[in-house]
């Protein structure tokens, strides 16, 4: 079990919506994608701790049912499924939300049963912790990179391609000028990454798990199927 893949942390939060609020929640989700609410989400973007995150709504009568033999669900509430891939520690993430963008957060969650509001911090911490589900298998394509690293790298590459495509055809002086222009214009995107520093004591568990995996290779799934 691991919520951590290098610099990314996987969060799952499943919470009940107050009765009759589903359509309003849907409207907010729709508006979030439009200009009307985008400014509310400026904070989320500026935090720049998140690779990808999302909210899904599961109406109480529409949980997937694939077989007539499968028991049907009998729920009082519609449910909210939240997921996030963020950089840093759980505390940093939850604290950042609570102190920097409480209004945006409340907009997304205030129709949830038992939601205490994002400020004060401790009840909000407790709420997220109470409703969080641990990930069993987590994969990131770039455990070495944060969302900031990906964005910076993708901004830098076209400039490098451009200079590389003509570097050998320029005079030395001209090249030098263009090279320095590139460095000046791209300076905020330059930087080095390395393995994630230790951000929580859970790191020790991850290291230990790697060690166990390396000494006892996992059984191929096909041989292990139980049915």
């Amino acid at each position: 079990m691991s919520n951590i893949a290098g610099k990314a942390y996987a969060m799952n939060v499943v919470t009940p919506l107050k009765p009759g609020q589903r359509w309003l929640a849907r409207l907010i989700h729709w508006l979030a994608g439009t200009r009307l609410l985008r400014s509310k989400l400026l904070g989320l973007r500026t935090l720049s701790l998140i690779h990808y995150a999302g909210w899904a709504i599961l109406p109480r009568r529409r949980w997937p049912r694939l077989d007539s033999a499968q028991p049907s669900e009998n729920l009082h509430y519609d449910y909210y499924l939240f997921f996030s891939n963020f950089n840093g520690s759980w505390e940093q993430y939850v604290d950042s939300f609570s102190s920097a963008i409480p209004a945006g957060l409340d907009l997304m969650w205030w129709r949830n049963v038992g939601y205490p509001g994002s400020v004060p911090r401790n009840p909000f911490h407790a709420y997220i912790e109470h409703n969080q589900f641990w990930t069993h298998h987590y994969y990131s394509a770039y455990p070495l990179a944060t969302s900031n690293d990906v964005k910076a790298a993708c901004r830098l590459r076209p400039a490098l391609c451009e200079l590389a495509s003509r570097a050998d055809r320029l005079s030395a002086q001209e090249f030098g000028q263009r090279y320095r222009t590139l460095l000046t214009e791209q300076q905020e995107h330059l930087g080095l990454v390395a393995e994630s520093p230790v951000v929580s004591l859970a790191h020790q568990a991850v290291v230990e798990r790697r060690r166990v995996e390396q000494t006892e290779p996992a059984v191929p799934p096909a041989q292990e199927s139980g049915s």
Partner: peptide, 19 residues
């Protein structure tokens, strides 16, 4: 309902090469 992209939406191979 709402999908927030805080990174970018280049093909993965572009992202990896850029990194």
């Amino acid at each position: 309902g709402y999908f927030f992209n805080g990174s970018n939406d280049e093909p993965l191979m572009t992202q990896l090469k850029a990194l």
